[in-house]
Design a protein around this nucleic acid. Structure first.
Lengths: 228, 228
DNA sequence: CGTATTCTTGACTTATATCAATGTCGGTGG
DNA sequence: CCACCGACATTGATATAAGTCAAGAATACG
């Protein structure tokens, strides 16, 4: 891991070479195979992470065994910096959706980094703030929208954050199941399956096993916005 | 406004007298009458605030006019520091549920405060982090729990954060309508009314116009946890 | 007092979950 | 290489939680 890797990430863009070198010195990189987890819900938070390459799903299981997807981690995102938020353990499990590469630092390093670099602090605040915004958006959608619109919003977001051009349109660039989408929108895989089938008939998307291609994003947006 | 007021708030506890004085010098206090708003959704974020006394509800309205309650602001909470999160406008409206007193600072002051006081930055990160946690909890509840349990959780939270001992039990210490609870839990006032009526029959709560007293918190907790 | 909120309650409707069965894909091992 | 197994997906039938519609009662307020 060298400083140019970090430099390319907005969170670290404003840091000096010396500061970046100090960070890279304390951190280390690690490869996570598809299906493996970086940490598990309830584990003591010994480190915080940055996704360098790949894609992760952060999930939570409720006491009665139901699972939800809290968020998808994209390259360049910080994750698992739970301790900085005042929690001693990880609130969820981070699983690699594809082979991934993560950088990690011991939690103890956090305070030092922040103290020596107010820019980093402000960036971090903005980052968490965005996440809070996203969470509120999700709450608003779950409170006021029906399932179909929620799914439409979720799919559009996936395309924005992880869309890849293919012949038929834009494809979600990591394996994503109907169940995953259900766990992101607070519904069941059955309902998601029905919705996607209907969309496929209308030519809006193309489905498949762990696969999703959006063919007509504009129509999907309309659907997401105007209740109809 | 003097420094002892701020000193009593965890967020500022670690600051030096000099720093606190600098903050109080740049800020000002303002009284908000019940029903008035501190700022409205979409207003440019010219200031950030701290609730000194009273109680606020932060609401959002969707394009089609549906309203949700994003959160309740309690004394000692920072709110409206949207700009620090990288947004130019307020994402919601903050309305006084009772006569309230707020301190405010121009948004431009934020960066200076943070740069000169890493402690404040770390406190702020923790604060937003907690809020993110709360948001995720709400998402999890809305995804996996039925309405009655969600309402139970919401009511218990209100009691924790704004409970006041009265003869019959613990009362929510500000006017709160059935509609408010509905907007906090993603349901309708009708359903909330039915649920509270049922609870009242079982002796768990005592209702009333804009009033809510929890008589048997233990039973309510049980209800909130074990699906039954 | 009358008018406006807030709340309650009943009857009905509907979106979505649940239950159940079947199909399809893709990798593993015989 | 083919057969089989497990994970994922589809689709129909049915059940039900909670929303909608509607009417009225209670409480606060000017």
């Amino acid at each position: 891991m060298d400083r140019s890797v970090l430099r390319s990430i907005p969170l670290f863009a404003a840091m000096s070479d010396a500061q970046l070198d100090r960070m890279t010195a304390q951190g280390s990189a690690r490869r996570i195979a598809q299906g493996e987890s970086v940490f598990e819900q309830g584990d003591p938070a010994k480190a915080f992470y940055l996704l360098l390459h790949g894609r992760l799903k952060v999930t939570q299981v409720t006491r009665d065994g139901q699972q939800i997807i809290v968020r998808v981690v994209h390259p360049g995102d910080l994750f698992g910096f739970t301790r900085a938020l005042g929690r001693p353990d990880y609130p969820g499990t981070a699983t690699a959706a594809v082979d991934s590469l993560v950088a990690s630092w011991p939690t103890e390093s956090w305070d030092g980094f922040v103290e020596n670099n107010p820019q980093l602090a402000m960036s971090a605040i903005r980052t968490i703030g965005q996440r809070l915004d996203e969470a509120h958006t999700r709450i608003r959608e779950m409170s006021t929208e029906e399932v179909e619109r929620r799914v439409a919003h979720a799919v559009l977001r996936l395309i924005e954050q992880a869309g890849k051009r293919v012949e038929a349109g834009m494809r979600v660039d990591f394996p994503i199941s109907r169940r995953d989408i259900a766990e992101m929108t607070g519904t069941t895989l059955h309902t998601v399956s029905r919705i996607l089938s209907a969309w496929e008939t209308r030519g809006l998307v193309e489905g498949g096993r762990q696969k999703l291609v959006v063919c007509d994003a504009a129509a999907l947006s309309r659907l997401a916005e105007n209740a109809g």
